[in-house]
Structures are given as structure tokens and as C-alpha cells.
Design a protein around this nucleic acid. Sequence first.
DNA 1: CGGCGCCTTGACGCTTGTCAAATGGTGTGG
DNA 2: CCACACCATTTGACAAGCGTCAAGGCGCCG
Lengths: 260, 260
Amino acid sequence: MQQDNGNHREAMSHVVRKLSARFPLNPVDANAVLDVPASLRWHEPGTHLVREGEEPRDYCSMVVSGLALRQKTTSSGQRQIISIHVCGDFLDAQHLFLERADHTVEALTRLRVVEFSRTSLRAVALSRPNVGRALWTEALSEASIFREWVLNVGARKAPARVAHLLCEIALRFEGAGLGSRDAFHIPMSQEQIGDAVGLTPVHVNRTLKGLSADGLIERDGRSIRIRNWERLQTAADFNPLYLHLQETTRDQFTPLKAGA
Amino acid sequence: MQQDNGNHREAMSHVVRKLSARFPLNPVDANAVLDVPASLRWHEPGTHLVREGEEPRDYCSMVVSGLALRQKTTSSGQRQIISIHVCGDFLDAQHLFLERADHTVEALTRLRVVEFSRTSLRAVALSRPNVGRALWTEALSEASIFREWVLNVGARKAPARVAHLLCEIALRFEGAGLGSRDAFHIPMSQEQIGDAVGLTPVHVNRTLKGLSADGLIERDGRSIRIRNWERLQTAADFNPLYLHLQETTRDQFTPLKAGA
DNA sequence: CGGCGCCTTGACGCTTGTCAAATGGTGTGG
DNA sequence: CCACACCATTTGACAAGCGTCAAGGCGCCG
């Protein structure tokens, strides 16, 4: 973990932009958010930002660049990835008003975050209705993704599960400026993909090969090109409604400067 | 759907009690909630209170008695139950700030709810910090349950999945005054249990028989007695942390009058 | 050059799904 | 009171999907 020397208000300007994309903030709202103590930080891949079972620290984070993921593990060590996060996502919104972490948040790639005071953000979220509403939308959209993942791992067969993950990543990466929906790079091993869809790495491999053989996708290492979006979406039973992408009032969030 | 003739403030008093259990409300908070337009209503089993794909109506509900569930279905008609709800649960908190429903909420049994104005509750949630905090806690605790269910259907084998569902129901029913953790009644068919844990009804049957044969539970129709809570919990890999039961400041919620 | 991840492939086995039929309880109508 | 239909549960035989184990290939880095 490595702290930048940038100033606090500049760091929180990322957060203001993101929240404004969810729900318009007036200057007073924006200033309240800007006043939250914050800094920019790097985390190396594999770093745990939140640990299951611990009390949340006072610092919580929003992704500026890189990818993060939520995960839980069974007592036998079997890992399940619960969601994947791109720039603009709040990694601690799910614990903002809970006193003990029920899952772990980990950096998937080299990760740049705005790290800000949990107590202060909580206070702003409760005292400024527009900020509260933006954060509510954010937290509820995430919860919607959890629900879709229950459906995905609980009710779909292997090819549909993997295809569904690809569709979600395609749209979310596109929304975060990480590629187009037709061509993107997944910085995950097949073992990690398996942990996300509830399959073994061996079966993920077979399934990806199958999707290639059917002409739905094309692979080059961890780069994916979607050959036929319509057919992939059908195979995946993918309906983007659950992402609540239209719950954004203006444009999507992208950080002010590349910054990474 | 059938409306009671009781007055509005009496209906909302259930909501005040529930919210106070999550976070203490002062008299001003309580009055703001009591002023939300509301009524008590019955729903018959199978009724859909929220429908996937629709815009939420202005009325949303909190359970007073009976059980409800959230579900989604794949395009092939495969159903997945996402969560089960007891008295005190808000059935629309997950859509409170979203403009389109991403899943369906259905009455599992005959269901009595407080039905209140969504717009008004939203306003109170944003303008009164204590109410907002109580609702946040409620919504985030639910999201935590979704995450555990992703783990359950994605990473556990059939016996553990079913056992885990039993453990959760045991604790939640106990918390809602619907039985003790050692003996309760599950008003679900084995097909519905299968839809909750991602198994076929036939395999649920075999699995339940297995749990009985191992001496973990005892069944009489849909009544369950837990013979050995420790061993069941171990078999289920059940850790109640994710229910965030301790996030309740005072006692649990139970409606003022039996009312059903 | 050698070692180490990760991906790939094949053979095999177990868990779970599918199909089908029997059992049993419950409510209804004769 | 019995006959019947209906539904959920139970059971068995079989099939299929996915997991497990193991070996080989490839790229990358020391």
C-alpha cells in the first residue's frame, strides 16, 4: 500500500464526479463531499482491502483505476468470487453501515483508489439527501448484481454461466472505458473465472473452447473478441437490466486524468 | 389483495418499531415515519408484489406476518429463489432508489404487509438521518444474504447447501418468533427448496433423507426438528455472521399484535 | 538452461439431473 | 362412507454434466 502526495480535495473530486453521474449534486453537496478527508493510494494485486470477519477500518475506497473483486470462502477453502469492480465502484459501500465485514475485498490487478474517511462519508450520506440518494443507487445496483449472480451460479449450465460473465464484463468494462464490448482483456486466470462462476478451472477451459468452437468468441490469451454478440447474449441468457446502467443521470464515470 | 380498514398511523407503527430495532429513532423521526401514508393488506400465496421488468409502483411493503420470497427466472423458465422474508423485512428496500425492478417478489404463504408510499418513505429516508441509517442497515444486511447465497449455490455440495438453508431459516424464523431454532415448520415444497439451493426436487428429497439418516435432523412432513445443531452447522459450513443479527440495537422486531 | 505458472488435453469417476412409476395424504363428489 | 383425482413426496434405474487426477505444452523469468 502506497500513498500519493496529492491533496485531499483533489482525491475526492473523483468521488464527486462519480456521485454526480448517479444523481446530480449541487455545489453545497459537492463541497460537503470534497471536505471528506481522503488520499489516493495504490494497492498491489492480491492485497486485501477489506477482510471477512473484521470490523471495517475508518478508511474506505472508490476505484480509480484497475480491478478489484469481492469474495468469500467456505471452511474447506473453496473460494467464490461475488463481484468484480471497475473504476467508479465503491468498494466499501456494502459495509458502510455494518459493523463487521462479511466478505473480503481484494485487488485483482494493480489498483488505484481514493481512500477516504468512512465516518465522514457516512455523515455526508445521511445529512445531504442528494449524496445519500447517489450512494443508495450505487449500493442497490450492486445488490442487484449479487442477485443475478445467485441466478447465474444456481440456475444456469456451465456454457451459459461463462458466457454470462463475459457479457457482464464486456458491458462493465466498456462503461469504464476499458475496451469496447466487442474486444477486451480479462486479467483473470481461468481458475479465477471458475471461482466466479462456480466451476473448476479445467471445466472453464473446456467451456471457453466450446464457445470459441461455436464461433461466439475468439480468444488470444486473456484477450476476448466477441464474434457474435447476439448469439453470445442468447447463449448466456443475458439481460442487462440488472446492471441498472440507465440509473445514471448523465454520462458514465471516468476519472479526470488517466492517473495510472 | 385485500385492504384492512385500520388507520394509516397504526399501520406505520409497525414500521417504526422495526426501524427502531435497527437504529434508535427519536420522537421526531418516529412521527415523520408515522405520517407516511399506509395501510395493512393481505396477499394470497403466489401473489406477485413486485414484478421483474416493471417500474416499481408507488406502494411498497414491509412484512407483518407470513412469508415472502424474491426470485428470478432464466429465459428457459428455470427459477431461482434469491431470498426468503419474514416479519419485519422490507420487500421493496432493494428497489427504493431504482427505477426498474430486476427481480420478482412473491407471497410464499398468506401474507400480511404494511403497504406505504414509496415516495414518502424515500423522502423520510433522505431527510431524517436516523431513519436513513436504519434503512441502510436493513438494505445492506439483505445484500449480505445475497452474497452468502452466491457462495452457497456456487461453492457448496448438495448436502451443505440444503443444510445451510435450514440453518438460515432456523435462525431467521426464531428471530421472527416463528419457532425455535430447534423446531420449526418450512412452508415450502421440496421443489421450492430446490429452487432456493439450485437443485432438482428429486435431489433435495435424497439430500433431506440423507441429513435425517445421519441424525442431523428429523422430519415430519414440512416440520423440521434439528437433532444436532453443532453437526448440522458444521455440515452446512454455516457462520451466522452474514445475517448481521447483532446490527440490531435492541430486541428483534415482532409486530405489536398477532394481527394474523 | 531450468523452473514455474498457466493453459490444454485425456481418461475416468462421482455427483447430480432425468425419466418414470409407486406411495401417500387430502379434498371433493357420488 | 367410498371412489376418485390431485398434488407432493419417495424411490429406482439410468444418463449426463462436471470434477478429479495426471500428464504434456507453452511462455516467461531468473
